[in-house]
Design a protein around this nucleic acid. Structure first.
Lengths: 151, 151
DNA sequence: TTTTATTAGTTGCAAACGTAACAATATGTT
DNA sequence: AACATATTGTTACGTTTGCAACTAATAAAA
């Protein structure tokens, strides 16, 4: 008795917490790369990565694909434009939207960063078997799906 | 040719990104609980959860256990104190540090939130086998460990 | 004992964020 | 056509964050 703190709940077994802790730990390593080398924020890196991987996109497209808020994307686009890594062009079919595309310098930064990302990714999976990784990915997707239950 | 966007890198296969996306998706459901019901931030919830689970701790202890920056914890402690969910007491062995402990109301909020957390956690693992979950946890830990490589 | 270095926690400031309101364009209705 | 509604993206404002500087207390060195 006297110590009333015991209930069944364990923070370490709460998936949102456990995943956040791991995700943050994994992100820190790469963050130091794009921060120190290119003075980018995480959102800027994500926008750059999407344009590098998928080519011309609208801000809306990036919001949807990356689950980023439109104000976050809007500001990241301004920042990348200031760095001359991204250019806008008007979409004549819909003059509200703008096409976004990386400049040559932007593509260069993208390639450099993805090379570093690949290296880091290799280090991360060191000692983990392909089977385990496959299960991991499968469960990760299942957890994400289950989190979207309307009620 | 003409479309130069193809390189090997795939954002969806980059673990820091994949984990962050999943972690954020999972966190949103529970966030709406502690935000709407108790007007808490994520950091406040984490501090509350640590004190609820582990009992009396110093701010430093919480920083270490939760990987939270000391300013974040400092502010969360003030907020929880304002809500009368937490009390400070001086540590006579070291008068720089303060003991933090939940009040009765704080414990009550903790119990209510952990009940909701348990329910959500059950929903999340729906349809996932115990074996798969065990592998998932194992890989999650391995990834975290691998991210701490000094270089 | 005095001096220096370290540690726990707080605060000021600037950067980053989320919400709501907004302008401009597009779509749908009458 | 005229009007209402919806959509894309930006901006203003208040909140949250991270960094650096700080205070107060302890520990270590002289």
């Amino acid at each position: 008795m006297e110590n009333e703190k015991d209930t069944s709940f364990k923070l370490s077994g709460f998936w949102p917490y456990a995943l956040n802790q791991a995700a943050e730990a994994l992100s820190l390593g790469f963050q130091s790369v794009y921060r120190k080398k290119y003075a980018m924020t995480r959102t800027e890196w994500r926008v750059l990565a999407h344009l590098g991987e998928f080519g011309r996109l609208s801000a809306k497209d990036i919001c949807e694909r990356a689950s980023l808020h439109k104000t976050k994307v809007s500001r990241a686009v301004v920042a990348l434009e200031d760095k001359r890594w991204l250019e806008r062009s008007t979409n004549e079919k819909d003059r509200r939207a703008e096409y976004l595309i990386l400049t040559k310098a932007g593509v260069q930064a993208y390639h450099d960063l993805t090379k570093e990302a690949d290296t880091l990714n290799m280090q991360l999976v060191d000692g983990i078997s392909a089977t385990e990784l496959a299960t991991f990915k499968k469960v990760l997707n299942a957890l994400s799906k289950n989190s979207n239950q309307p009620h």
